[in-house]
């Protein structure tokens, strides 16, 4: 399998370990990810909150750059995924706006590419037994609250599974031997980009999510979004929990025996190494 790859801005900086783990896992599973040459920011919340046309024109530039290679686009960040997928749907289904966005971004939309989240790639596109057969270390004893957040599962028209009770991450975690717990906060909001602007509010939202994960018996949370991961680590002042928050790709890497995962764990603000040592996983 070969794809174009759109990392997005966070993955070059605050979420480096998500980028590196996603790339390493794909490689180990025989999937080629080619980073889109000269990609630009998707505009994220700031563009769609303040400038409707810009919020579609920026992702359109990236779709146009990927059209040359002709491969579907894999996106790890939930927010980038949402913006690219929404733009693709608009360009596909709305001829009037398509013409306008094509003129703004100087390209002709071909409509041949699919936008795929990296979670969808490993959970749905990869044959089910493929991952399981390559596991070197079962992550037994690791009880995980799989946290999907908002933009991987909503709105329903961009979602690849049940938006109210998704289970793709749970399935992947089971395949590597971990034990997902049942809990009700899978798709709650972490506060997203309000983390800087309404910090007190986000502290309350995050504390509730982390505390509920603890109450459900989890010893770690696992995410597929750089902003969720960051907020759950750094905005938990009102919670007493010290449970780590992983990217799901880091845990796959651990199970596949990819040695670099130790470097990624060292980058976390809430250090997960003590937990992993206590379970004899590192």
């Amino acid at each position: 399998m070969e794809f174009s790859y759109y990392p997005g801005c966070s993955l070059e900086s605050s979420a480096k370990e998500y980028n590196q783990s996603a790339m390493a896992v794909a490689k180990a599973l025989g999937i080629t990810l080619n980073e889109i040459e000269d990609w630009v920011c998707c505009g994220a919340t700031s563009a769609h909150s303040t400038n409707h046309k810009l919020s579609y024109a920026l992702p359109a530039i990236n779709i146009s750059l990927a059209q040359n290679a002709g491969n579907d686009i894999v996106v790890p960040c939930a927010s980038c995924y949402s913006r690219l997928k929404k733009t693709d749907l608009l360009l596909r289904n709305n001829p009037e706006e398509r013409k306008e966005i094509e003129d703004i971004a100087d390209f002709n939309y071909e409509g041949k590419l699919e936008i795929v989240s990296v979670l969808e790639l490993f959970a749905k596109k990869l044959p089910k037994e493929e991952l399981k057969s390559k596991v070197k270390k079962n992550l037994s004893g690791l009880k995980l609250a799989c946290y999907y957040g908002c933009l991987t599962v909503r709105p329903p028209e961009i979602c690849f599974e049940n938006p109210e009770n998704p289970d793709s991450m749970d399935t992947v975690m089971k395949a590597i031997g971990a034990e997902p717990v049942r809990w009700s906060y899978k798709t709650e909001c972490c506060g997203a980009s309000l983390s800087l602007t309404a910090t007190g509010t986000v502290n309350k939202m995050v504390a509730r999510i982390v505390d509920m994960a603890a109450e459900a018996g989890a010893n770690a949370i696992v995410t597929a979004c750089p902003l969720c991961q960051m907020n759950l680590e750094v905005r938990r002042n009102e919670s007493n929990s010290n449970m780590p928050v992983f990217y799901f790709t880091e845990l796959i890497a651990l199970a596949l025996g990819i040695p670099e995962c130790k470097d990624w764990f060292a980058k976390h603000i809430v250090d997960p190494r003590q937990l992993l040592k206590s379970l004899s996983l590192i």
Binding site: T45, H48, S49, C150, L151, R154, P155, P156, P163, E164, T187, C189, G191, A192, S193, L194, A198, T201
Partner: peptide, 10 residues
């Protein structure tokens, strides 16, 4: 303060 979590629309 709407975080665009999209629960309402869903």
């Amino acid at each position: 303060l709407c975080s665009s979590c999209e629960i309402c629309g869903a």
